[in-house]
């Protein structure tokens, strides 16, 4: 951490100036991460639920996941879930309450420019996701995971999923009040978790549901990751296109509806 030069309280004379933009972004990102880690519900969403589902679904046999190694089928879906929980659910809820409590408003009067705040929030999400993915990968390997495919394709999908889900989260927080954002973001999370092609492979879904799931960001991310990690295929063009479309849609809605105060 960089130390900030300070003046003593005997001297209150004006000496204004913004900190270097890099320092502002990093300090804002680390402040947000610190608050997030302190929040029990966010930790539940980011770590406990994905890891419990990973271990649970890999171990129990009474849920049909189709043929093949259970941990191999489950892990890509858990990675998709981790992205969804952090980039979409956490982000939407935190943004809604930040606005409700005037946090965004006051930051709007601080030297940190708005794009700097967006950059800081994105950086915080990326750092958190790296820790999440690390934890999931370690536990998956302990459970006997044998991933296939190109790791680069996995990284591309995770980045595109993060981009799509985070703009959708901002769009949601832009449209709704804080309490409604909390309820809807959690509702959508649960819906996409079980029926959106995140964890349950789309191939196991009934026909019409499978078509819908393929076009959802959750299904595109989960399905795309399974394509690479389970089947060893190359990057799915459909998954990439769907995620890109949701990203553009989320960005358009957020740009129209998002308010800072």
């Amino acid at each position: 951490m960089t130390t900030t030069p300070t003046a003593t309280l005997t001297d209150l004379r004006p000496n204004p100036g913004a900190a270097p933009i890099g320092r502002m972004v990093i300090r804002q990102a680390s402040f947000e991460l610190k608050l997030l880690v302190r929040n029990g519900e966010q930790l539940l969403l980011a770590f406990i639920i994905p890891l419990v589902l990973l271990v649970g679904l890999s171990s129990v046999s009474w849920i049909n996941l189709g043929p093949g190694s259970r941990v191999n089928i489950v892990t890509p879906g858990i990675l998709a879930l981790a992205v969804m929980s952090t980039a979409f659910t956490s982000r939407a809820i935190a943004t809604g309450f930040d606005r409700r409590y005037g946090v965004l408003k006051l930051l709007g009067a601080s030297p940190l420019p708005r794009w700097g705040l967006v950059a800081a929030k994105t950086l915080a999400i990326i750092v958190l996701e790296i820790v999440q993915v690390g934890a999931i990968v370690i536990v998956a390997f302990l459970l006997g995971w044998t991933p296939r495919g190109n790791p680069l394709a996995v990284v591309v999908l995770l980045i595109m999923g993060t981009a799509a889900f985070s703009t959708l989260g901002l769009a949601l927080a832009g449209v709704l009040r804080a309490e409604a954002t909390l309820a809807v973001a959690n509702g959508i999370y649960l819906l996409l978790l079980f029926a959106g092609g995140t964890i349950v492979p789309i191939a196991l879904m009934p026909g019409p549901m499978a078509v819908v799931a393929k076009l959802l960001p959750s299904g595109a991310l989960g399905g795309g990751l399974r394509d690479v990690l389970v089947a060893g295929n190359s990057l799915s063009l459909l998954a990439v296109t769907v995620l890109l479309a949701w990203f553009v849609f989320g960005l358009a809605v957020a740009a129209r509806t998002f308010r800072w105060d």
Binding site: T4, P5, T6, L9, G17, A19, Q28, S110
Partner: peptide, 10 residues
Amino acid sequence: MASLYANPLD
């Protein structure tokens, strides 16, 4: 908040 400024108070 101090870290966002160049010469903040202590």
